[in-house]
Design a binder for these strands. Structure first.
Lengths: 199, 199
DNA sequence: ACCTGAACACCGTTCAAGT
DNA sequence: ACCTGAACACCGTTCAAGT
């Protein structure tokens, strides 16, 4: 009330925070320079200093969304092991897509050329699965392949669910998928078939 | 050379054909009414009669791309059975994403509200996997679950590959994924572990 | 019935000008 | 160094007018 600064106020983090809220509330296609600028009470051209145009805005949004997903699945892996850990990580993955559909859509967008930052953030997600299988006794070549397999299955199921528009009966089908893929991995690398078969 | 008709010439199929070529050559983001209209030598407003705006253009493109993918995987399933059929269908799936990256990107886009046509076209792809497992002896509840599992894995791997920008060493990793998931399905529903384990 | 062309709103982008 | 505001190009959309 004292004095309103008609200028400045703006940072890369503030810009990112607005972008993440925007895509989750209004859909990924609502991510425009104009919409972000309006919420920050600045002109659209003011954003060029911080993210460098629309391409840059999409980039920082994709990186932030991917990192958020990585953090969530990493937290879910704490305190669990084996098939329980796979389930915990996979369900945290799905919860993220349900709670933050716009951020998940942002992770589905193709990166720009030589986008090492985004590729590295994405790799961090697969690495969580890899660590789970490493803890189960697999070593680097096989643990990476197992991680990529379960992550592909999880990612594909959630992308298809995200596009189907319906969440009906997906919970059971998701658990079915996890059991099947984990069974394939266990059967391939371990002698016995362990893991929680839920039917 | 005789007479150039400065008017008409236009149809929904012609519009779709131009759109499919455009996305594969210039990327999905190049799909605009202006670009399609220019190649058809009409004004942008002429497209509204046939597809109803940008949303409609994206819709017909997504439906056509999904149908093209469905046709390709269906053809690959002919004359094969068992694990060989799963491999044939899955590799046809991947070949499509490599040959038509823009059309694959179109299938990744979320459908508009109550888009039954697109949901049905997408289901046709999963149905191909379901038929393969039906031929192996599974019945509707389990064949659908198995189909959804292998399709999710295939879809997720290819989406991640599509975003990684690199195709290095993906061929072997893809076969590894197929073997693992098919092994999980076989082990779950059939007593023995059949299928071509490639290592 | 279908296309043209003008008109309008909106968005991305650049840049000179301010602070 | 960072933001404003004008300016421009481009795209989506509508609609009256033509055929």
């Amino acid at each position: 009330m004292s004095r309103q600064p008609s200028r400045q106020r703006l940072s890369r983090d503030a810009l990112t925070a607005v972008a993440l809220l925007l895509v989750d509330e209004s859909g990924y296609d609502a991510l425009t320079l104009s919409a972000v600028a309006e919420q920050l009470q600045v002109g659209p051209s003011a954003l060029y200093t911080h993210c460098g145009g629309l391409d840059g805005l999409r980039h920082v949004t994709a990186v932030a969304a991917t990192n958020n997903l990585a953090v969530q699945v990493r937290q879910a892996a704490i305190g669990t092991a084996g098939g329980d850990a796979v389930n915990a990580v996979a369900h945290a993955y799905r919860d993220f897509t349900l709670d933050h559909p716009g951020q998940f859509a942002a992770t589905l967008r193709p990166p720009r050329a030589n986008d090492d930052e985004l590729v590295q953030a994405d790799q961090a997600i697969t690495d969580v699965f890899a660590l789970v299988y490493t803890a189960m006794g697999l070593t680097p070549p096989e643990s990476a392949l197992a991680a990529r397999s379960i992550r592909s299955a999880v990612h594909g199921f959630l992308a298809l669910e995200h596009n189907s528009g319906t969440t009906e009966a997906c919970e059971d089908d998701y658990q079915h998928l996890l059991d099947t893929v984990h069974r394939g991995i266990s059967n391939r690398y371990f002698a016995d078939i362990e893991g929680p078969a839920s039917d």
